[in-house]
Computed example of a mutant assay.
Amino acid sequence: MIQASQVVKMAGGQQAPVLGGCSLELGGSGLTAVVGPSGAGKTSLLYCLSGLDRPDQGYVGINGTDIYSLSDEKRTRFLRDNVSFVFQQYNLIGYLTVEENVRLPHALARKRVDSSAVEDVLSRFGLWEKRAARVSTLSGGEQQRAALCRAILMRPSVIFADEPTGALDTANTDIVLRVLRDLADQGCSVVMVTHDVESAALADRIVFMRDGVIAQTTGRLSVDQILHTMARLGGGLHA
């Protein structure tokens, strides 16, 4: 369960807020796509929902916990135990190996992880043979797959993904989207920011944003329905 109520986020030097009072409730599992034109506030909303950026006003709850009422230490621990992140920039450590990067969140949390689970997830993404390679030597698609392995291994209840396919070719895009869809079907709540209309069409819920507010929330829509809704709301996506 992800809940947000009247979330406001200001930015330095700007009179208008980046987020102008966003309220949202995402219950249970499923894939949610957050869409809208550039500058609509999609990533800002994702960061506030995920605990990465404190809003200036409003409430954000994950699984019934008011995450911004927690101390920094408790919030970090709560997010580590419940949330994983997948970003377009991958956020891997280049001088570590693939396996070391995948194991890193467990190491930081001082938790043991079954080696067979590591092998299973790396094999699933075709990375087991490259487990000892430094991630700086991998292609962009391989790095994104490694980032997904790291996120999945934590077995979170929520995954936040910020443009996870924005820099990928078609083959790697298909892999990433299929995995996110599978995770949502298996009980995880996945929230994905995307500019790609075909990616959005895979979602169970679509949140349309415009000028820092949530303009509309719908269930699953076809590509044509998404494009029609965006045109009506005055913004566009990439077909």
Rank of each mutant, 00 (worst) to 15 (best):
A184W: 10
T218Y: 07
S189C: 12
L122M: 00
V158M: 06
G28V: 11
L26D: 08
G30L: 11
V135P: 06
D211Q: 12
V83C: 05
G187K: 06
R75G: 10
R210D: 12
N101D: 05
I159S: 10
S189V: 11
A133R: 14
G58K: 01
T65H: 01
L180A: 07
D174F: 08
P105R: 04
Q143P: 08
T137P: 06
K42T: 02
G126A: 04
S71N: 11
V8T: 15
G236A: 14
V18F: 15
C149I: 01
P105F: 02
A4K: 06
R103Y: 01
A239T: 15
T165I: 01
V197N: 04
Q143S: 09
A215T: 06
V98M: 01
M1Q: 03
R54A: 12
P37F: 05
H195W: 04
F125Q: 02
N91I: 02
T165A: 04
L52R: 03
V113D: 14
R124E: 10
A16R: 15
A40F: 06
G234Y: 05
V35L: 11
A147K: 03
L26S: 12
G28D: 03
T43Q: 04
G141N: 07
D224G: 09
T32M: 15
T218G: 00
S5W: 05
L148A: 02
K130H: 13
G235P: 00
R75I: 07
L148W: 10
T229W: 01
D56Y: 00
N91C: 00
R210T: 09
N101G: 02
S29V: 13
A215E: 09
K130M: 09
V83T: 03
H195N: 10
L202D: 07
Q14S: 13
Q186A: 14
D204K: 11
G141A: 08
D182V: 05
L19T: 13
A132F: 15
L221M: 14
P37V: 00
G28M: 10
A167Y: 04
A147S: 10
H238G: 13
D120E: 15
R178N: 10
G219L: 14
S115W: 07
A11H: 11
A107T: 11
P105Q: 02
L148G: 03
T43C: 05
G28C: 12
T43R: 00
T43A: 03
P37G: 10
I2A: 13
V18N: 13
A107R: 11
G39T: 02
L26V: 13
V98A: 00
Q144R: 04
V190Q: 01
E142Y: 11
H228V: 13
S50W: 07
V34C: 14
A203E: 09
A33Q: 15
E99R: 10
H106D: 09
A4F: 06
Q6M: 04
H195P: 05
T218F: 09
A16E: 15
L202K: 06
A33P: 08
M209R: 00
S136K: 11
F87D: 03
I206N: 08
V193D: 03
A151Q: 09
H238W: 12
L168D: 04
K130F: 11
F85W: 06
S116K: 15
L180Q: 03
S115L: 13
Q144W: 09
V223E: 13
A4R: 01
V121R: 03
G140P: 06
G27S: 15
A171P: 02
V113F: 05
A4D: 13
T65G: 07
Y59W: 14
H106K: 07
V193Q: 08
D185R: 14
T218A: 11
A203Y: 08
A200K: 00
